[in-house]
Each structure stands twice: as structure tokens, then as C-alpha cells.
């Protein structure tokens, strides 16, 4: 029982990332009808927002402390980050420690702008072109974005630690009445899961309970009629693209402590996220979220020794296997609507 619980927990963090990326992909596909192969790159850019902020905050100046000496007997050089100098030593240190959560504030505007520029500058011209063209141009864009990041940040993964408070693991099993030390889970992964639930809830709430969201939903259902009613639906869809980019970016920001970001992390996640979207059903937001968590958990169950003994290599292929079975038996995906992309 506790083993099952542990595997579910293990699947949640990857599942959260899948769900967030797939949610953004589906938002873009559902509103603009564009298959965005550059979405993984947006996830990666989000992660590098956190890296950028952490570099900015750790910019420091050097002063010479006459009272102390280093091991050679020279006066000690002390590096003080500007953040500590600006906000005082204690608060400054706290800011540096909390870089990753703070990056959320930094990443949202950046990702919104990136998304808007991408949509207005490039994607806009591809609405009338075939899906293959959209895939190809966004695939090219993904390569370009990835190479730009590589040029500025290098090819090596950049470790970006979580705040002190959330490092280490916690015995979640004890909390729920299992034996002590049976279910130990890294705290940050739990934070990531809760964070992703919050973001997902925010996106759904935004679509469900605001006028803007209502118009967008109406546009998703019937774009022409909404246009006939005198609503500039294109503008709203553009904003939705920005929001989708921000969701992918946030997923990336918070993922940095789990997996040090490198320039090809986007491509690694992209393929899986597409599989997730297709399994969930093209254009279905709840489907994307459900499939994201489901596949994350399935993947973690497939990685147990028991499953690998049963079917060797199952942990490597489970997601693709599920995708193939779903596509062939239930072409619309788990929760896909009728008539969406059913050529």
C-alpha cells in the first residue's frame, strides 16, 4: 500500500510538468488551431528565466576587508552581492535564497512578452497554412531558440537550488499513518505539485469565471459567430497565446531545482507533451491535465523493479505504448471533443 502511494507521489512531479506543458499546448491549439512545436522551447526559456534572475541577484562587488586576512596573509577580499548591499545583509540573503520562487514574478511578464511577440511576429502568418507547415516553422523556431540559449548560457546544465526551507526530504508516510520512513518524498517536488495545481486551477478559473474567459471559450467553440457579434476574437486569442507561454514558462521556472536546466530540456519534454496532448484529446483542456498526471504516474509505476521484471524495458516505452493504444482504439483521445482534428 505504501509502495503504491510512493509510486503515485513519484509520478506526480513529472506528471505536473507534463500537465502544465500540455495545458499550454492545448490552449494554443484550442484557440488558434496551431500545432506549436516550439512549446518545449518556451518551457526551457522559463527555466532560464530563473537562471537569469539567479545570476542577476548574485552579481556582486568586491571589497577589501582590512580586519581579516586570507591564508597568504593578504587582506581578505569579500564579495558582497548587490542584493545584500541594497536590501541589507539579512533580507538580501533571503532574496538570493528564494531566487526560484521569486523568478515566478520575473518570468510571467517575460513569458507573456515572448508569447505575444511569437504570435504576432510569426505564428499569425500560419493560420491559413496546413498543419504540416505550422509544425515545420515552429520546429525551426524551437531550434533557433534553443541555440540562442545555448550561445548565451553554454551547453552544460546549470544547477539552480531551491530555497533552504524546501531542500531535503520529508516523511509524508508518517503524516498519513503509514510506517515511519516508508514514504519519503523530496519537499520541493511536493511544492511543485501544489504549484502546478494552483496554476491549473487559475487557468480554469480564468476561463470559467471571467468575462474574458467566457468570450475565449465561446471563440473556441465557434470563432466565426463570436466575430460576427462584433468581438475582436483574434486579439483575445493572442493574449491566450501569451498566457499559454506563461504557463509553460512557469512550469519551467519551478522545475529548475528538480532538474538543472540545459538548452535541450525543451526538446526532451516536447515529444512527451505532444504524446500527452494526443492521449488527452486534441483541444480538450481537462483531457490534457488528466493525461499529464496519468502518464506521469504510469511512468513511475513502470519504473518499479516489479514492472521491469515483468516486461523488460517497460519504463522506457510505457508512454509511447499508451499513446499508440489510445490513438488506435480511441482516436479522439481520452476526453477529446467530436470533430476536432479528425481527418
Amino acid at each position: 500500500m505504501d509502495a503504491i502511494f510512493l509510486q503515485i507521489l513519484n509520478g506526480l512531479d513529472k506528471g505536473s510538468a507534463y500537465a502544465l506543458i500540455a495545458l499550454g499546448l492545448t490552449l494554443i491549439f484550442g484557440t488558434l488551431g496551431v500545432v506549436n512545436f516550439a512549446h518545449g522551447a518556451l518551457f526551457m526559456i522559463g527555466a532560464f528565466c530563473a537562471v537569469t534572475l539567479s545570476r542577476l541577484l548574485s552579481l556582486s562587488f568586491t571589497t577589501i576587508d582590512e580586519t581579516r586576512t586570507d591564508f597568504l596573509g593578504n587582506p581578505m577580499k569579500v564579495e558582497t552581492p548587490y542584493a545584500e548591499w541594497l536590501f541589507g545583509p539579512e533580507f538580501g540573503a533571503a532574496i538570493i535564497d528564494w531566487t526560484v520562487p521569486l523568478s515566478i514574478l520575473f518570468a510571467i511578464p517575460v513569458m507573456l512578452v515572448v508569447g505575444l511577440v511569437m504570435e504576432r511576429g510569426l505564428i499569425k502568418h500560419f493560420y491559413k497554412r496546413p498543419h504540416a507547415d505550422q509544425i515545420l516553422v515552429t520546429f525551426g523556431l524551437a531550434i533557433v531558440l534553443q541555440e540562442v540559449i545555448k550561445y548565451f548560457y553554454g551547453a552544460n546544465p546549470i544547477p539552480t537550488p531551491a530555497p533552504e526551507l524546501f531542500r531535503g526530504s520529508f516523511d509524508f508516510g508518517a503524516l498519513l499513518g503509514f510506517e515511519a520512513n516508508a514514504v519519503i518524498y523530496p519537499i520541493w517536488r511536493a511544492v511543485y505539485f501544489i504549484f502546478s495545481l494552483t496554476v491549473i486551477a487559475a487557468v480554469f478559473g480564468f476561463l470559467q469565471f471571467t468575462t474574458f474567459g467566457m468570450v475565449v471559450r465561446a471563440g473556441m467553440a465557434d470563432r466565426e459567430t463570436v466575430g460576427l457579434l462584433g468581438i475582436d476574437i483574434d486579439k483575445r486569442f493572442t493574449i491566450m497565446f501569451g498566457i499559454a507561454a506563461a504557463v509553460a514558462g512557469l512550469a519551467g521556472v519551478m522545475y529548475t531545482p528538480i532538474n538543472p536546466p540545459n538548452y535541450h530540456m525543451g526538446m526532451d519534454f516536447l515529444v512527451l507533451s505532444f504524446v500527452v496532448v494526443v492521449v488527452g484529446g486534441m483541444g480538450s483542456l481537462p483531457g490534457a491535465v488528466l493525461a499529464g498526471f496519468l502518464l506521469g504516474i504510469l511512468e513511475s509505476f513502470a519504473s518499479t523493479a516489479w514492472a521491469i521484471n515483468l516486461v523488460p524495458g517497460i519504463n522506457q516505452i510505457i508512454i509511447y505504448l499508451v499513446a499508440i493504444v489510445v490513438l488506435l482504439t480511441r482516436p479522439r483521445g481520452l476526453m477529446g471533443r467530436k470533430g476536432v482534428m479528425e481527418e
Partner: peptide, 30 residues
């Protein structure tokens, strides 16, 4: 035979899934 049961983006994803599966298997179990 399997992938061509679908077309468009689904076909692309199916071929992608098969290729990634072959890649993963070639790396590990095979």
C-alpha cells in the same frame, strides 16, 4: 500498417512514438 490508420498530426505523433520506442529499446532492453 498501424500508423497509417490515422492521418495528419496523429500520424506524425504515431511515427514519432514508434521511433522513440525503438530508440529507447535499442538503448536498453535490446
Amino acid at each position: 500498417y498501424i500508423s497509417l490508420r490515422r492521418s495528419g498530426i496523429y500520424f506524425s505523433i504515431l511515427t514519432l512514438a514508434f521511433a522513440q520506442m525503438s530508440f529507447a529499446l535499442a538503448y536498453s532492453v535490446l
